[in-house]
Simulated assay, not measured.
Amino acid sequence: MKHAVDHLGDRPQVVFACRANGGRSVASRLLAEYYAQGRIIALSAGTEPGEQIHPEVARVLESLGLDTSRERPTLLTAEMIAASDLAITQGCGENCPYVPGARYRDWPLEDPKGQDEQTVRRIIVDIDRRVRDLLAELVPDLELAPSLVSDAVGR
């Protein structure tokens, strides 16, 4: 069972939060899970969860080999944040629950909803870089696999 106060010897838990939980936060969670190889617990949630994952985001993630079929938008709760070592906010702004003592970090990311494939890929490249940097910080001894998106979009 997770304890909000002490995670010593435990896997760090990160919650990626955006508004609809249909694009940015899902991509972040799936990329974090892929690269972390079980070394962290990654959650994603939204302040106003939609009905489904944005199809344009699902298509790009699937093209990278990430399975989106089990993804369901979930409501972000204060309990989720309290149980996590870090909350990464991605456009939910003042709608994100505030939990005293919780660690927050904001990633200013463009919303991929309704964007063309090239724009969605560019956003996912940005997320990929941020996730890889985050994992290097949280799990310094983790040997990261090569980037899934390094050839997907020219930098």
Rank of each mutant, 00 (worst) to 15 (best):
L61F: 10
E62R: 14
I41P: 00
L30E: 07
G50I: 01
G46I: 01
A36R: 11
I53W: 03
R24Y: 09
T68Q: 11
T68V: 15
S63Y: 03
Y35M: 10
V57A: 15
S28T: 11
R24W: 08
S28W: 10
G65A: 07
I41D: 10
G65V: 01
Y34D: 09
E48Q: 14
E33N: 13
G38K: 11
H54M: 02
I41L: 13
L43K: 11
L31R: 03
E51H: 12
E62V: 11
L30R: 05
V60E: 15
I40R: 03
L30W: 11
I41C: 00
H54R: 06
A42E: 02
I53Y: 03
Y34E: 05
R59D: 12
R59C: 03
R39P: 00
T47D: 12
E62Q: 15
L30G: 00
Y34H: 15
T47W: 09
Q52G: 02
E56V: 14
A58H: 00
G65S: 08
A58G: 12
L43T: 07
L30V: 05
R29K: 15
L61H: 09
V57I: 08
E51P: 00
E51T: 12
P55Y: 02
P55Q: 02
S25Y: 06
R29C: 12
I40E: 09
Y35K: 09
A45I: 06
V60H: 03
E48M: 13
E56R: 07
L66T: 08
L61Y: 08
R59V: 12
V26S: 01
S28K: 06
A32C: 15
G65H: 10
Q37D: 15
L64F: 12
I40Y: 05
E62P: 05
P55R: 07
V57E: 00
A36E: 09
P55S: 04
L61C: 07
Y35C: 14
E62I: 00
Q52T: 14
T68C: 15
I53K: 04
Y35N: 10
R39S: 15
V60R: 08
I41Y: 06
S44E: 03
I40T: 04
G46K: 06
L66Y: 06
V57W: 09
I53S: 00
V26I: 15
P49G: 08
E56C: 06
I40F: 05
A42V: 03
V60L: 11
S28D: 05
L43N: 12
P55V: 04
S28V: 04
A36M: 10
V57Y: 10
R59K: 15
A27V: 02
V57P: 04
E33R: 12
V60S: 08
S25I: 09
P55G: 01
A42T: 10
A42M: 07
E51S: 14
G23D: 04
